[in-house]
């Protein structure tokens, strides 16, 4: 995974090239969501420069923004049938990931009989299903690209500016902790496992399983166990365990452990994050974008029944495309 920062000057260099290649300038621009609208602002400035250099006036271009609704469908800011027919359209986005959004927008525009449709994105992921007419930078699937920013968000173990959470860090479980008291959280299948058991699991998993301890100063306040494996065409990270000391609840520690799990999944180029949800919590995880996958796990000794659930990390998980 790489973090790619495309600075303002580089973006404008790409957009200046685009402005020169848009000849004639399309009469209707359709920027897609926030990043498309931001790119449209900057392309407008480059088009103006080209026009001035030629001694011409700024072309008469209408702009029809597109938003994406909860069902991933394009929503036009104005009635498209009133605006699109016979226009030369330019679809604009900042970044194309899976390509499905751009593909849906192109299809929605084409329904209304434009004279032509061109498309552009500053960033294009290599596995996109839609390749636009022009693009700036092609990135790998796990890369994160930032552009037109004065700052880039750090990875972090805190809950953001809104939180007054104490500072914490993570430490990989090692021998020095093997005799420490475990965290008891009233879940039998967690409470019976010792740090020594988890160390053994790490040592015998050939690097696939790792337990991290969440520490505030030297106090262990929670922990996380991750397991990465290839399942057919997909690489999946399973969050085997997440627990926070009951006396440390409501400080946001659970959330930061899960955020770290997602960060690690992306870093490990996993397609999906999996967890085993106890039966009564399945609907809750569905609310957060997880869906059930085949199978279930019954622990008769603890009277616990779990269902595997997944949420995609990358845009091209074989089972989750779309």
């Amino acid at each position: 995974m790489k973090t790619i920062f495309i600075g303002r000057e580089e973006v404008h260099a790409y957009l200046a090239d685009l402005a020169h290649r848009l000849e004639p300038v399309p009469s209707l621009w359709c920027p897609i969501t926030h990043s498309g609208r931001e790119i449209a602002v900057h392309i407008a400035q480059e088009v103006e420069k080209v026009a001035k250099a030629k001694g011409e006036s700024v072309p008469n271009v209408r702009i029809l923004p597109i938003e994406i609704d909860d069902q991933h469908q394009p929503v036009f800011e104005e009635r498209p049938e009133d605006v699109i027919p016979y226009q030369s359209v330019l679809l604009l986005d900042g970044a194309i990931h899976s390509g499905m959004t751009m593909a849906r927008c192109a299809a929605a525009v084409l329904k209304h009989r434009p004279s032509s449709v061109a498309s552009y994105s500053v960033v294009l992921k290599r596995r996109s299903v839609f390749i636009p007419t022009l693009w700036g930078v092609m990135t790998d699937e796990t890369d994160r690209a930032h552009f037109l920013l004065n700052k880039i968000p750090n990875n972090r173990l805190n809950a953001g500016a809104k939180s007054s959470q104490p500072h914490v860090h993570l430490r990989r479980l090692d021998e020095s902790r093997s005799k420490a008291p475990t965290i008891k959280c009233d879940v039998p299948s967690i409470d019976r496992v010792t740090w020594g058991d988890r160390l053994w699991e790490m040592a015998t998993s050939d690097g696939a399983t790792t337990t991290y301890l969440l520490e505030r100063s030297e106090t262990v306040v929670g922990f996380l166990t991750l397991h990465v494996e290839d399942r057919g065409a997909a690489r999946v990270m399973t969050v085997l365990e997440v627990a926070v000391d009951p006396s440390e609840k409501d400080k946001g520690y659970g959330g930061l452990l899960l955020r770290f799990a997602d960060t690690m999944a992306r870093q490990a180029e996993c397609d999906a994050v999996r967890l085993n949800a106890i039966e009564e919590k399945v609907p809750m995880y569905e609310k957060f974008g997880y869906h059930r996958v085949a199978g279930s796990l019954v622990l008769p000794l603890e009277d616990e029944r779990y269902y595997p659930m997944e949420r995609r990390v990358l845009y091209h998980h074989p089972d989750l495309r779309g």
Partner: peptide, 27 residues
């Protein structure tokens, strides 16, 4: 749609109430 800070805060609260377990048998 939610921002990541809110998403993890809400999901984290749920996990703090009911920790995630692998259910796997250890050594």
């Amino acid at each position: 749609f939610a921002c990541s800070d809110c998403y993890y805060e809400l999901l984290g609260r749920e996990v703090e109430e009911r920790p995630l377990s692998s259910g796997g048998v250890r050594r």
